[in-house]
Write a protein that binds this DNA or RNA. Structure first.
Lengths: 212, 212
DNA sequence: TAGATTGTTAATCGATTAACAATC
DNA sequence: TAGATTGTTAATCGATTAACAATC
Protein backbone atom coordinates (compact mmCIF):
# COMPACT_ATOMS: atom_id res chain seq x y z
CA UNK A 1 0.00 0.00 0.00
CA UNK A 2 0.88 3.67 -0.17
CA UNK A 3 3.09 4.81 -2.93
CA UNK A 4 2.35 8.31 -3.97
CA UNK A 5 1.41 10.86 -1.36
CA UNK A 6 -0.81 13.81 -2.23
CA UNK A 7 -3.76 11.87 -3.53
CA UNK A 8 -6.30 14.13 -5.17
CA UNK A 9 -9.58 14.53 -3.36
CA UNK A 10 -11.48 13.37 -6.44
CA UNK A 11 -9.78 10.00 -6.08
CA UNK A 12 -10.50 9.79 -2.36
CA UNK A 13 -14.14 10.55 -2.94
CA UNK A 14 -14.41 7.56 -5.23
CA UNK A 15 -12.73 5.07 -2.90
CA UNK A 16 -15.77 4.40 -0.69
CA UNK A 17 -17.82 3.65 -3.79
CA UNK A 18 -15.14 1.24 -4.97
CA UNK A 19 -15.18 -0.34 -1.57
CA UNK A 20 -18.92 -0.88 -1.48
CA UNK A 21 -18.82 -2.41 -4.94
CA UNK A 22 -15.95 -4.77 -4.20
CA UNK A 23 -17.39 -5.69 -0.82
CA UNK A 24 -20.56 -6.73 -2.63
CA UNK A 25 -18.59 -8.86 -5.08
CA UNK A 26 -16.73 -10.38 -2.15
CA UNK A 27 -19.97 -11.30 -0.40
CA UNK A 28 -21.19 -12.83 -3.65
CA UNK A 29 -18.10 -15.04 -3.57
CA UNK A 30 -16.53 -13.50 -6.65
CA UNK A 31 -12.87 -14.41 -6.96
CA UNK A 32 -11.62 -12.02 -9.59
CA UNK A 33 -12.78 -8.86 -11.31
CA UNK A 34 -11.38 -6.70 -14.11
CA UNK A 35 -11.26 -2.92 -14.25
CA UNK A 36 -13.70 -3.19 -17.16
CA UNK A 37 -16.29 -5.00 -15.08
CA UNK A 38 -15.90 -2.58 -12.20
CA UNK A 39 -16.24 0.31 -14.62
CA UNK A 40 -19.49 -1.06 -15.96
CA UNK A 41 -20.90 -1.54 -12.48
CA UNK A 42 -19.92 1.92 -11.33
CA UNK A 43 -20.55 3.89 -14.49
CA UNK A 44 -16.94 4.94 -14.83
CA UNK A 45 -14.15 4.16 -17.31
CA UNK A 46 -11.79 1.24 -16.80
CA UNK A 47 -8.93 3.62 -17.37
CA UNK A 48 -9.96 5.83 -14.50
CA UNK A 49 -10.29 2.93 -12.12
CA UNK A 50 -6.82 1.61 -12.94
CA UNK A 51 -5.43 5.13 -12.68
CA UNK A 52 -7.08 5.59 -9.27
CA UNK A 53 -5.79 2.32 -7.85
CA UNK A 54 -2.31 3.02 -9.14
CA UNK A 55 -2.10 6.00 -6.79
CA UNK A 56 -1.81 3.51 -3.95
CA UNK A 57 0.03 0.57 -5.41
CA UNK A 58 -0.14 -2.30 -7.85
CA UNK A 59 -3.05 -4.48 -6.87
CA UNK A 60 -3.74 -6.34 -10.10
CA UNK A 61 -2.14 -8.77 -12.46
CA UNK A 62 -1.84 -8.50 -16.21
CA UNK A 63 -4.16 -10.81 -18.08
CA UNK A 64 -6.04 -11.65 -14.90
CA UNK A 65 -7.42 -8.52 -13.34
CA UNK A 66 -7.84 -8.05 -9.60
CA UNK A 67 -8.26 -10.70 -6.95
CA UNK A 68 -11.41 -9.57 -5.14
CA UNK A 69 -10.28 -10.57 -1.67
CA UNK A 70 -6.91 -8.90 -2.05
CA UNK A 71 -8.33 -5.75 -3.61
CA UNK A 72 -10.94 -5.50 -0.88
CA UNK A 73 -8.21 -5.77 1.72
CA UNK A 74 -6.08 -3.11 0.06
CA UNK A 75 -8.94 -0.64 -0.11
CA UNK A 76 -9.69 -1.34 3.52
CA UNK A 77 -6.09 -0.43 4.27
CA UNK A 78 -6.34 2.75 2.23
CA UNK A 79 -9.53 3.91 3.92
CA UNK A 80 -8.43 2.85 7.39
CA UNK A 81 -11.18 0.26 7.73
CA UNK A 82 -8.69 -2.19 9.26
CA UNK A 83 -7.62 0.23 11.96
CA UNK A 84 -10.29 -0.83 14.45
CA UNK A 85 -11.38 2.67 15.23
CA UNK A 86 -13.71 3.19 18.13
CA UNK A 87 -16.58 5.64 18.17
CA UNK A 88 -18.91 7.07 20.76
CA UNK A 89 -22.21 8.73 19.99
CA UNK A 90 -23.31 11.89 21.73
CA UNK A 91 -26.98 12.84 21.52
CA UNK A 92 -29.54 10.03 21.60
CA UNK A 93 -32.50 11.86 20.11
CA UNK A 94 -34.28 10.29 17.18
CA UNK A 95 -31.34 10.81 14.85
CA UNK A 96 -28.84 9.32 17.27
CA UNK A 97 -31.28 6.54 18.00
CA UNK A 98 -31.64 5.78 14.28
CA UNK A 99 -27.87 5.62 13.81
CA UNK A 100 -27.37 3.36 16.81
CA UNK A 101 -30.04 0.96 15.61
CA UNK A 102 -29.53 1.01 11.88
CA UNK A 103 -26.17 2.32 10.84
CA UNK A 104 -23.62 -0.34 10.01
CA UNK A 105 -20.58 0.92 11.89
CA UNK A 106 -18.90 -2.47 11.56
CA UNK A 107 -19.00 -2.25 7.79
CA UNK A 108 -16.87 0.88 8.06
CA UNK A 109 -14.55 -0.82 10.51
CA UNK A 110 -15.82 1.17 13.48
CA UNK A 111 -16.87 -0.16 16.86
CA UNK A 112 -19.45 1.91 18.68
CA UNK A 113 -18.43 1.69 22.32
CA UNK A 114 -20.74 4.02 24.23
CA UNK A 115 -23.61 6.45 23.77
CA UNK A 116 -24.41 9.60 25.76
CA UNK A 117 -27.29 11.96 26.34
CA UNK A 118 -28.11 14.84 28.65
CA UNK A 119 -31.80 14.09 29.02
CA UNK A 120 -32.58 12.48 32.38
CA UNK A 121 -35.55 10.61 30.92
CA UNK A 122 -33.32 8.87 28.37
CA UNK A 123 -30.25 8.23 30.50
CA UNK A 124 -30.10 4.65 31.66
CA UNK A 125 -32.48 3.34 29.01
CA UNK A 126 -31.24 0.85 26.46
CA UNK A 127 -30.92 1.58 22.76
CA UNK A 128 -29.77 -1.35 20.67
CA UNK A 129 -27.18 -2.94 22.92
CA UNK A 130 -26.18 0.31 24.57
CA UNK A 131 -27.18 1.75 27.87
CA UNK A 132 -27.38 5.51 27.51
CA UNK A 133 -24.76 7.17 29.68
CA UNK A 134 -24.97 10.49 31.45
CA UNK A 135 -23.56 13.42 29.50
CA UNK A 136 -21.73 14.51 32.62
CA UNK A 137 -19.62 11.37 32.47
CA UNK A 138 -18.45 12.17 28.96
CA UNK A 139 -15.16 13.81 29.95
CA UNK A 140 -14.29 10.98 32.31
CA UNK A 141 -15.10 8.41 29.65
CA UNK A 142 -12.99 10.21 27.07
CA UNK A 143 -10.01 10.29 29.41
CA UNK A 144 -10.42 6.68 30.45
CA UNK A 145 -11.10 5.01 27.14
CA UNK A 146 -9.72 7.44 24.57
CA UNK A 147 -12.19 6.71 21.78
CA UNK A 148 -10.93 7.67 18.33
CA UNK A 149 -14.04 9.36 17.04
CA UNK A 150 -17.39 10.77 18.06
CA UNK A 151 -20.73 10.93 16.28
CA UNK A 152 -22.22 14.30 17.11
CA UNK A 153 -26.01 14.18 17.06
CA UNK A 154 -26.77 16.73 19.75
CA UNK A 155 -29.07 19.75 19.29
CA UNK A 156 -27.42 22.66 17.48
CA UNK A 157 -27.31 24.95 20.49
CA UNK A 158 -24.92 22.72 22.40
CA UNK A 159 -22.90 21.53 19.40
CA UNK A 160 -19.94 23.84 19.95
CA UNK A 161 -19.73 23.18 23.65
CA UNK A 162 -19.74 19.40 23.17
CA UNK A 163 -17.28 19.59 20.27
CA UNK A 164 -14.97 21.61 22.47
CA UNK A 165 -15.05 18.97 25.18
CA UNK A 166 -14.40 16.21 22.68
CA UNK A 167 -11.49 18.14 21.23
CA UNK A 168 -9.96 18.85 24.61
CA UNK A 169 -9.95 15.20 25.54
CA UNK A 170 -8.16 13.99 22.47
CA UNK A 171 -10.80 12.87 20.01
CA UNK A 172 -9.34 12.44 16.51
CA UNK A 173 -12.42 12.75 14.35
CA UNK A 174 -15.95 14.10 14.61
CA UNK A 175 -18.80 12.91 12.41
CA UNK A 176 -20.91 16.02 12.63
CA UNK A 177 -24.67 15.81 12.10
CA UNK A 178 -25.41 19.22 13.58
CA UNK A 179 -25.87 22.07 11.16
CA UNK A 180 -23.12 24.02 12.87
CA UNK A 181 -19.77 24.72 11.28
CA UNK A 182 -17.43 23.46 13.95
CA UNK A 183 -14.36 25.63 14.17
CA UNK A 184 -11.80 23.49 15.89
CA UNK A 185 -8.42 25.12 16.17
CA UNK A 186 -6.45 21.87 16.30
CA UNK A 187 -5.93 20.87 12.66
CA UNK A 188 -5.25 17.27 13.65
CA UNK A 189 -8.88 16.85 14.62
CA UNK A 190 -10.78 16.00 11.48
CA UNK A 191 -14.43 16.89 11.01
CA UNK A 192 -16.75 15.28 8.49
CA UNK A 193 -19.93 17.29 8.11
CA UNK A 194 -23.15 15.63 7.08
CA UNK A 195 -24.97 18.49 5.39
CA UNK A 196 -28.38 17.21 4.45
CA UNK A 197 -29.59 20.59 3.20
CA UNK A 198 -27.12 20.46 0.33
CA UNK A 199 -28.37 17.01 -0.58
CA UNK A 200 -32.02 18.07 -0.76
CA UNK A 201 -31.09 21.21 -2.71
CA UNK A 202 -29.33 19.01 -5.24
CA UNK A 203 -32.52 17.03 -5.65
CA UNK A 204 -34.43 20.30 -6.00
CA UNK A 205 -32.07 21.39 -8.76
CA UNK A 206 -32.39 18.09 -10.57
CA UNK A 207 -36.18 18.15 -10.70
CA UNK A 208 -36.14 21.83 -11.70
CA UNK A 209 -33.82 21.48 -14.67
CA UNK A 210 -36.17 20.04 -17.25
CA UNK A 211 -39.23 22.07 -16.46
CA UNK A 212 -37.68 25.44 -17.16
CA UNK B 1 -31.60 33.57 -14.81
CA UNK B 2 -30.48 30.79 -17.05
CA UNK B 3 -28.04 31.55 -19.76
CA UNK B 4 -25.79 28.70 -20.50
CA UNK B 5 -27.17 25.19 -20.38
CA UNK B 6 -24.92 22.24 -19.52
CA UNK B 7 -23.67 23.49 -16.22
CA UNK B 8 -20.84 21.33 -14.91
CA UNK B 9 -21.64 19.25 -11.88
CA UNK B 10 -18.76 20.80 -9.95
CA UNK B 11 -20.55 24.14 -10.21
CA UNK B 12 -23.89 22.68 -9.14
CA UNK B 13 -22.29 21.05 -6.15
CA UNK B 14 -21.09 24.45 -4.96
CA UNK B 15 -24.41 26.23 -5.33
CA UNK B 16 -25.97 24.98 -2.09
CA UNK B 17 -22.89 26.15 -0.21
CA UNK B 18 -23.20 29.56 -1.84
CA UNK B 19 -26.84 29.62 -0.90
CA UNK B 20 -26.24 28.86 2.75
CA UNK B 21 -23.56 31.53 2.94
CA UNK B 22 -25.66 34.20 1.26
CA UNK B 23 -28.74 33.27 3.24
CA UNK B 24 -26.70 33.83 6.38
CA UNK B 25 -25.57 37.25 5.17
CA UNK B 26 -29.18 38.04 4.32
CA UNK B 27 -30.35 37.14 7.80
CA UNK B 28 -27.57 39.30 9.22
CA UNK B 29 -29.05 42.20 7.22
CA UNK B 30 -26.08 42.53 4.91
CA UNK B 31 -26.91 44.62 1.87
CA UNK B 32 -24.00 43.97 -0.43
CA UNK B 33 -21.15 41.52 -0.75
CA UNK B 34 -18.19 41.15 -3.11
CA UNK B 35 -16.87 37.98 -4.67
CA UNK B 36 -13.75 38.52 -2.60
CA UNK B 37 -15.65 38.48 0.68
CA UNK B 38 -17.60 35.40 -0.35
CA UNK B 39 -14.37 33.71 -1.37
CA UNK B 40 -12.86 34.35 2.03
CA UNK B 41 -15.90 33.00 3.84
CA UNK B 42 -16.05 29.87 1.71
CA UNK B 43 -12.37 29.18 1.25
CA UNK B 44 -12.53 29.57 -2.52
CA UNK B 45 -11.12 32.08 -4.98
CA UNK B 46 -13.07 35.18 -6.00
CA UNK B 47 -12.42 34.25 -9.59
CA UNK B 48 -14.13 30.92 -9.24
CA UNK B 49 -17.18 32.40 -7.60
CA UNK B 50 -17.64 34.97 -10.36
CA UNK B 51 -17.05 32.28 -12.96
CA UNK B 52 -19.65 30.05 -11.31
CA UNK B 53 -22.32 32.75 -11.10
CA UNK B 54 -21.68 33.77 -14.69
CA UNK B 55 -22.93 30.35 -15.81
CA UNK B 56 -26.41 31.51 -14.87
CA UNK B 57 -26.42 35.22 -15.60
CA UNK B 58 -25.06 38.58 -14.53
CA UNK B 59 -26.03 39.15 -10.95
CA UNK B 60 -23.50 41.78 -9.90
CA UNK B 61 -22.45 45.30 -10.66
CA UNK B 62 -18.98 46.60 -11.38
CA UNK B 63 -17.49 48.56 -8.55
CA UNK B 64 -20.27 47.47 -6.20
CA UNK B 65 -20.39 43.72 -5.97
CA UNK B 66 -23.57 41.74 -5.43
CA UNK B 67 -26.76 42.88 -3.79
CA UNK B 68 -27.34 40.20 -1.17
CA UNK B 69 -31.12 40.11 -1.49
CA UNK B 70 -30.99 39.89 -5.27
CA UNK B 71 -28.23 37.29 -5.31
CA UNK B 72 -30.08 35.20 -2.77
CA UNK B 73 -33.17 35.32 -4.94
CA UNK B 74 -31.26 34.34 -8.06
CA UNK B 75 -29.67 31.33 -6.39
CA UNK B 76 -33.08 30.33 -5.10
CA UNK B 77 -34.28 30.40 -8.69
CA UNK B 78 -31.31 28.35 -9.86
CA UNK B 79 -31.79 25.67 -7.22
CA UNK B 80 -35.57 25.62 -7.52
CA UNK B 81 -36.10 26.84 -3.97
CA UNK B 82 -38.85 29.18 -5.17
CA UNK B 83 -40.78 26.39 -6.85
CA UNK B 84 -42.84 25.50 -3.77
CA UNK B 85 -42.17 21.80 -4.04
CA UNK B 86 -44.14 19.48 -1.85
CA UNK B 87 -42.74 16.41 -0.14
CA UNK B 88 -44.15 13.43 1.67
CA UNK B 89 -42.17 11.21 4.00
CA UNK B 90 -42.51 7.45 3.95
CA UNK B 91 -41.20 5.53 6.94
CA UNK B 92 -41.60 7.10 10.39
CA UNK B 93 -38.97 5.14 12.27
CA UNK B 94 -36.39 7.03 14.25
CA UNK B 95 -34.73 8.43 11.14
CA UNK B 96 -38.00 9.61 9.61
CA UNK B 97 -39.01 10.94 13.00
CA UNK B 98 -35.77 12.90 13.29
CA UNK B 99 -36.22 14.45 9.86
CA UNK B 100 -39.84 15.42 10.53
CA UNK B 101 -38.93 17.08 13.79
CA UNK B 102 -35.58 18.62 12.98
CA UNK B 103 -34.93 19.00 9.29
CA UNK B 104 -35.60 22.46 7.91
CA UNK B 105 -37.60 21.62 4.80
CA UNK B 106 -38.78 25.23 4.51
CA UNK B 107 -35.21 26.45 4.19
CA UNK B 108 -34.93 24.33 1.04
CA UNK B 109 -38.26 25.62 -0.23
CA UNK B 110 -40.06 22.35 0.45
CA UNK B 111 -43.36 21.84 2.23
CA UNK B 112 -43.78 18.52 3.96
CA UNK B 113 -47.43 17.65 3.42
CA UNK B 114 -47.91 14.15 4.81
CA UNK B 115 -46.07 11.29 6.49
CA UNK B 116 -46.71 7.55 6.21
CA UNK B 117 -45.83 4.35 7.98
CA UNK B 118 -46.86 0.70 7.84
CA UNK B 119 -46.62 0.01 11.56
CA UNK B 120 -50.05 -0.11 13.17
CA UNK B 121 -48.66 1.07 16.49
CA UNK B 122 -47.37 4.28 14.90
CA UNK B 123 -50.22 5.02 12.51
CA UNK B 124 -52.49 7.73 13.86
CA UNK B 125 -49.93 9.09 16.29
CA UNK B 126 -48.68 12.64 15.89
CA UNK B 127 -45.10 13.52 14.98
CA UNK B 128 -44.39 17.22 14.85
CA UNK B 129 -47.56 18.58 13.29
CA UNK B 130 -48.23 15.47 11.28
CA UNK B 131 -50.58 12.64 11.93
CA UNK B 132 -48.98 9.46 10.64
CA UNK B 133 -51.03 8.03 7.77
CA UNK B 134 -51.54 4.42 6.88
CA UNK B 135 -49.12 3.09 4.28
CA UNK B 136 -52.04 1.54 2.45
CA UNK B 137 -53.38 5.00 1.71
CA UNK B 138 -50.16 6.04 0.00
CA UNK B 139 -51.27 5.31 -3.55
CA UNK B 140 -54.54 7.12 -3.06
CA UNK B 141 -52.75 10.10 -1.56
CA UNK B 142 -50.27 10.23 -4.42
CA UNK B 143 -53.06 10.23 -6.99
CA UNK B 144 -55.08 12.81 -5.13
CA UNK B 145 -52.41 15.30 -4.15
CA UNK B 146 -49.57 14.62 -6.58
CA UNK B 147 -46.70 15.54 -4.27
CA UNK B 148 -43.50 16.45 -6.11
CA UNK B 149 -41.06 14.47 -4.00
CA UNK B 150 -40.80 11.77 -1.36
CA UNK B 151 -38.37 11.23 1.48
CA UNK B 152 -37.70 7.51 1.63
CA UNK B 153 -36.86 6.40 5.17
CA UNK B 154 -38.35 2.92 5.10
CA UNK B 155 -36.43 -0.26 6.02
CA UNK B 156 -34.21 -1.55 3.24
CA UNK B 157 -36.26 -4.65 2.53
CA UNK B 158 -39.27 -2.68 1.35
CA UNK B 159 -37.35 0.14 -0.31
CA UNK B 160 -37.75 -1.09 -3.87
CA UNK B 161 -41.40 -1.86 -3.49
CA UNK B 162 -42.21 1.58 -2.07
CA UNK B 163 -40.02 3.33 -4.66
CA UNK B 164 -41.90 1.49 -7.38
CA UNK B 165 -45.23 2.72 -6.05
CA UNK B 166 -43.95 6.27 -5.80
CA UNK B 167 -42.65 6.09 -9.35
CA UNK B 168 -45.88 4.67 -10.73
CA UNK B 169 -47.91 7.47 -9.28
CA UNK B 170 -45.88 10.28 -10.73
CA UNK B 171 -43.37 11.34 -8.08
CA UNK B 172 -40.62 13.53 -9.57
CA UNK B 173 -37.87 13.08 -7.03
CA UNK B 174 -36.87 10.68 -4.28
CA UNK B 175 -34.62 11.62 -1.40
CA UNK B 176 -33.32 8.16 -0.63
CA UNK B 177 -32.07 7.33 2.87
CA UNK B 178 -32.16 3.58 2.37
CA UNK B 179 -28.91 1.89 1.49
CA UNK B 180 -30.47 0.44 -1.64
CA UNK B 181 -29.53 1.53 -5.12
CA UNK B 182 -32.92 2.34 -6.55
CA UNK B 183 -33.11 1.36 -10.19
CA UNK B 184 -35.95 3.39 -11.57
CA UNK B 185 -36.43 2.98 -15.28
CA UNK B 186 -38.03 6.36 -15.83
CA UNK B 187 -35.13 8.80 -16.26
CA UNK B 188 -37.35 11.77 -15.42
CA UNK B 189 -37.57 10.58 -11.83
CA UNK B 190 -34.53 11.90 -10.03
CA UNK B 191 -33.00 10.14 -7.07
CA UNK B 192 -30.69 11.74 -4.55
CA UNK B 193 -28.98 9.12 -2.42
CA UNK B 194 -27.85 9.91 1.09
CA UNK B 195 -24.97 7.49 1.53
CA UNK B 196 -23.76 7.85 5.08
CA UNK B 197 -21.25 5.02 4.78
CA UNK B 198 -19.20 7.03 2.30
CA UNK B 199 -19.20 9.95 4.67
CA UNK B 200 -17.88 7.93 7.62
CA UNK B 201 -15.28 6.27 5.40
CA UNK B 202 -14.05 9.70 4.40
CA UNK B 203 -13.60 10.54 8.05
CA UNK B 204 -11.80 7.24 8.52
CA UNK B 205 -9.43 8.10 5.69
CA UNK B 206 -8.76 11.57 7.08
CA UNK B 207 -7.78 10.31 10.53
CA UNK B 208 -5.68 7.54 9.00
CA UNK B 209 -3.56 9.69 6.71
CA UNK B 210 -1.12 11.16 9.18
CA UNK B 211 -0.53 8.12 11.31
CA UNK B 212 0.84 5.93 8.53
C1' DT C 1 -13.22 61.73 -10.95
C1' DA C 2 -10.77 57.74 -8.57
C1' DG C 3 -11.39 53.34 -6.55
C1' DA C 4 -13.58 49.12 -6.61
C1' DT C 5 -15.30 45.18 -8.56
C1' DT C 6 -17.65 42.96 -12.07
C1' DG C 7 -17.94 39.59 -16.29
C1' DT C 8 -15.10 37.48 -19.52
C1' DT C 9 -11.11 36.07 -22.10
C1' DA C 10 -6.76 33.81 -21.93
C1' DA C 11 -3.41 30.99 -19.40
C1' DT C 12 -2.59 27.42 -16.32
C1' DC C 13 -3.33 23.60 -13.97
C1' DG C 14 -5.24 19.12 -12.98
C1' DA C 15 -8.07 15.21 -14.00
C1' DT C 16 -9.81 11.95 -17.27
C1' DT C 17 -9.28 9.17 -21.24
C1' DA C 18 -6.77 6.71 -24.78
C1' DA C 19 -3.09 3.98 -26.21
C1' DC C 20 0.20 0.47 -25.65
C1' DA C 21 4.17 -2.14 -24.05
C1' DA C 22 4.68 -5.51 -20.49
C1' DT C 23 3.35 -9.85 -18.98
C1' DC C 24 0.36 -13.14 -16.65
C1' DT D 1 1.27 -19.97 -27.30
C1' DA D 2 -2.74 -16.59 -27.81
C1' DG D 3 -5.87 -13.74 -25.35
C1' DA D 4 -6.63 -10.79 -21.73
C1' DT D 5 -5.73 -7.16 -18.82
C1' DT D 6 -2.68 -4.66 -16.12
C1' DG D 7 0.18 -0.22 -14.96
C1' DT D 8 1.83 3.75 -17.06
C1' DT D 9 2.84 7.24 -20.44
C1' DA D 10 0.98 10.55 -23.55
C1' DA D 11 -3.02 13.10 -25.33
C1' DT D 12 -7.18 15.25 -24.43
C1' DC D 13 -10.39 17.42 -22.05
C1' DG D 14 -12.32 20.32 -18.50
C1' DA D 15 -12.00 23.18 -14.50
C1' DT D 16 -9.64 26.71 -11.96
C1' DT D 17 -7.00 30.80 -11.75
C1' DA D 18 -5.11 35.09 -13.45
C1' DA D 19 -5.50 39.20 -15.91
C1' DC D 20 -7.89 43.07 -17.53
C1' DA D 21 -11.10 46.00 -20.05
C1' DA D 22 -15.57 47.71 -18.91
C1' DT D 23 -18.07 50.43 -15.90
C1' DC D 24 -20.59 51.44 -11.67
Amino acid sequence: MKKNMNISSAVILRMPRYYRCIDELYRDNCIRVSSGTLAQRLGLTASQIRQDFSCFGEFGQQGYGYNVKKLRYEIQEILGINNNYTAILVGCGHLGHALINNFDFEKCGFTLTAVFDADETIIGTTIGNYQVRHGKDLDFYLESFQPDTAVLTVPGDVAHEVAERLAQHGIRGIWNYTNCDLHISNPDIKVENVVLIDSLLNLSYKISEKSE
